[in-house]
């Protein structure tokens, strides 16, 4: 029952749009896939879009926080986009802050931010 989240490449960036609710296995699989893809393509930036996701619990937040730190270690900056208000509120109430993460309202603005950060 494992579903893989597609990772798209656009110039030196990777684009991921998460379209369905993440279960633990999919989240862990995604972590692995993304790191391999960064290695394979030498991508310098990653945008992960959460517009369709209506909840994130502490496990998924942890996997996400980890993958962001890991990507950083591999030299790729990560921007997360489209976090819904309800998701932001529950994350804050859970006490999860995702402190070092760059954020943007949507995929387009996320890409713009990434381009600025990468100095293109």
């Amino acid at each position: 029952m494992n579903m893989r989240i597609p990772i798209l490449k656009l110039h030196d960036c990777l684009l991921i749009s998460i379209q369905w609710e993440l279960d633990d296995q999919t989240a862990l699989q995604f972590q692995e896939d993304l790191l391999h893809k960064i290695h394979e393509t030498s991508a310098r930036g990653v945008v992960i879009d959460f517009t369709s996701i209506d909840f994130i619990d502490s496990f998924i937040a942890k996997v996400l926080g980890d993958v962001i730190s890991m990507s950083k270690l591999m030299g790729a900056k990560v921007v997360i986009t489209g976090i819904q208000p309800a998701v932001a509120i529950t994350l804050i109430e859970l006490g999860i802050r995702l402190e070092e993460v760059m954020t943007a309202l949507d995929l387009e603005k996320g890409l713009e931010k990434l381009q600025r950060e990468l100095g293109d």
């Binding site: 208000p85 943007a104 309202l105 603005k109 996320g110």
Partner: peptide, 8 residues
């Protein structure tokens, strides 16, 4: 913090 998470 919540505002930052939604991207503003």
């Amino acid at each position: 913090e919540a505002v930052r998470l939604v991207g503003a």
